[in-house]
Design a protein around this nucleic acid. Sequence first.
DNA 1: GCATATGTGTTCGTTACCGAACATACAGAT
DNA 2: ATCTGTATGTTCGGTAACGAACACATATGC
Lengths: 266, 266
Amino acid sequence: MSVTSIPPHKSKKPVSDKSAHSHPKSVVPSSHETKLNRLLGSLPDEDLKLWLPDLELIELPLGKVLYESGDIEKYVYFPTSGIVSLLYVMKNGDAAEIAITGNEGMVGISLFMGGNSTPSRAVVQSAGRGYRLKAQIMKEAFDRSGPVTHLLLRFTQALITQMSQTAVCNRHHSLDEQLCRWLLLSLDRLPGSELVMTQELIANMLGVRRQGVTEGALKLQEAGLIRYVRGRITILDRMGLEARVCECYAVVRDEYDRLLPKELAA
Amino acid sequence: MSVTSIPPHKSKKPVSDKSAHSHPKSVVPSSHETKLNRLLGSLPDEDLKLWLPDLELIELPLGKVLYESGDIEKYVYFPTSGIVSLLYVMKNGDAAEIAITGNEGMVGISLFMGGNSTPSRAVVQSAGRGYRLKAQIMKEAFDRSGPVTHLLLRFTQALITQMSQTAVCNRHHSLDEQLCRWLLLSLDRLPGSELVMTQELIANMLGVRRQGVTEGALKLQEAGLIRYVRGRITILDRMGLEARVCECYAVVRDEYDRLLPKELAA
DNA sequence: GCATATGTGTTCGTTACCGAACATACAGAT
DNA sequence: ATCTGTATGTTCGGTAACGAACACATATGC
């Protein structure tokens, strides 16, 4: 699957990967692997056991569309690696990222929030894997088990903070600052210090021009903070990035730390 | 209480109305009055009855701060009139509105979401009244009663949509369009066709300059859509505003219609 | 090795919004 | 009737991001 399956900035017709969507690879999950997702890993054993038969481990290839705007959500997704982006696409094709989720969370909150759909698209921004669970099973667990309810709602509040902060950041901060925020938020959800991501795609996520990202990335590279070659960005100096980012990054990171269970030992 | 109690754009130190906050006027609510808030009005009778002894009807004067960023929330608020604005205030004093709530909703979702606080401020943007309820009682009802849970979560999802759309609108739409969005969203939460609101305050909510709002408002006045004099804005042509607004307004309105119980007959 | 697609660098004129400063107009108090 | 504070109108230079266009460089397939 190539990068081109993600609709570029301004493209009129979003393209989803039908083949990947209709027949995802699926294996029987071991209890151990589920721990790779922090929500699944924080569930009480009794709740997790009930889910195990229905948790399907699937690939999340770059560009895969998990939900389209307005879709009734049939599954929820718990990434174990990779990043899923919540993206709002406007009528004219302009887009803007609202929030991202990695292995600290899940995709599909509208299922237990009650709406069963949202006016946004969920698309894989960085390839990985994850579990999916049938809507009905998730719903039953949410209504039945207090711990499940509370865990998921706390995650949802963290997500709300990320969305709010995105709104504020879009209003007040420079493209350069926002680029740093985006790199750091993505980096926090990836194992190494490399992002596989073209500037064109970053621009689409941030809702800005590709040239703007190029200029921003150049500055960061000249400052020795990152290095990149054709879609591979390596972070060289994380502290340097944190020195350039706006306050939005720390607000979001701290809220996630406060609201979600601690990360498991690596 | 004067308008000046709302911190102006760029002010360094937010001011809260301590006197109003510590001794709100309070009366015993009749079951009928609670119907003025659409969430309270949609509760099953048995749940509402349990709340009645603890629901305090209070004034919501312009500028009153219900929560400061990071405050532990001791009460939740159900406006019956007026508008409460969720505002994020940055270190340098710049602010931006994240969402607004009127009598269709409530303020203080972090109570049942689990965080007990948020990194934003809740401030009365248009004076009115509302009920407040002690945190503990709300929490118990949320955990005990399925209908309460589901009603509040659906409202929360609508709020999430408003926040997302604010993020997108901040990114892509002109000040003029955003002004229209703001006027319409506010108008939907007020009884008549008049807003008591200075351009300075609107600017603070939108996170833009006062002059920008002046210019936008002038255009709307010249087009015969609104009329205003010193803090009183009258909407003359609602359809005209809707013709100028960006798609964001309709997305939010439609999501509220979809997710929340229908408005009661007036 | 060559063609082609994809990713990045650079330029240029335009525009929306910014911050600052100041002018005018109306409202309420004395 | 005047004073004073508040709300709105207007101007001006600066700047960050925009859209368009094009150059160049590195992969990939033939």
